[in-house]
Design a protein around this nucleic acid. Structure first.
Length: 267
DNA sequence: CACGCCTCCTGTGCGC
DNA sequence: TGCGCACAGGAGGCGT
């Protein structure tokens, strides 16, 4: 469930620890679960990490020699220093004597080394929408994207194309806030503007609280995010809508659990 | 091209 | 008590 706020919280802890460090050795799970998993990881050895950045849910660390290390937490991925247990799938040895362990019980996470800017091995990253909290998330472009698509609004948000970093939790939260039914295929400019603002507000508030922890998500220092108790829609099925009192309903949309208010979220 | 469905994976919690 | 099973959802792949 790491979405943009969780990945950003991890990035903020990882960046000062890794910037300037050189990777002296690397190990990764020899049994891949998908093609191109741990793509070109051998190229890491001897490389210096300049910084740790982020695009959507992807961590992107520029290296020397024109390379980049891409990291994705998947469902249960977490980074910890000098840590060992049965779920460690990759480990980097650093020139300060520490090791960075990538722990990933459900094995949906991935790491890859690529030529800087060449994301052809990572299709979602190569067609990723704008950063929601940056100026390039333009309202006019968002309105145009929503007018053009024929898909239902929630799966469209989850595709990462209209905007980067929104996953199942924050999609439910933002759609509730903007009063839009997750199955809606007609989101005009007024509602698109409300959704644009809601996405920014929901994500910014979650970053302030360092993300949503139910069970697996932890930051590099082992602490949990504090956003879970602030969720209004996700996981709240059966409770009254705080806005109109109608009982929130859970359904399945595109294979994802989806909670919404049938009273005030309009198709 | 883009939509929508299926698959990958395993710890957890529930019902019987 | 123990077993079996549905469920959780990131991205990728592929059929239509």
């Amino acid at each position: 469930m790491p979405e943009l706020p969780e990945v950003e919280s991890v990035r903020r802890q990882l960046d000062p620890e890794l910037s300037g460090r050189t990777v002296t050795d690397a190990w990764w799970d020899p049994i891949p679960t998908m093609p191109r998993e741990f793509h070109q990881m051998g190229l890491l050895v001897g490389r210096k990490i300049h910084s740790v950045g982020r695009r959507g849910k992807f961590l992107i660390a520029p290296l020397d020699e024109g390379l980049e290390l891409i990291m994705h937490l998947g469902m249960t991925g977490a980074f910890r220093f000098d840590h060992d247990d049965a779920w460690v799938r990759s480990r980097l040895w650093l020139d300060d004597g520490r090791t960075l362990a990538f722990r990933d019980a459900r094995r949906f996470g991935r790491m890859a080394v690529v030529e800087a800017g060449d994301y052809s091995a990572l299709p979602t990253l190569s067609s990723l929408g704008p950063e929601p909290l940056q100026d390039d998330f333009r309202l006019d472009g968002f309105i145009r994207d929503l007018a053009r698509t024929t898909a239902a609004i929630k799966p469209y948000l989850l595709s990462q194309r209209p905007v980067a970093g929104v996953g199942n939790i924050y999609a439910d939260e933002a759609l509730w806030m903007a009063r839009i039914h997750p199955l809606s295929r007609r989101v005009g400019s007024g509602r698109a503007a409300a959704l644009h603002a809601a996405i920014r507000e929901v994500l910014a508030a979650a970053i302030e609280r360092e993300g949503t922890t139910f069970r697996d998500y932890q930051m590099v220092n082992g602490e949990s995010g504090r956003n879970a108790s602030f969720l209004v829609a996700y996981g709240q099925a059966g409770r009254p809508c705080p806005r109109c009192g109608t009982l929130l309903r859970k359904t399945v949309l595109g294979g994802r659990g989806t909670t919404y208010c049938p009273g005030c979220q309009r198709p």
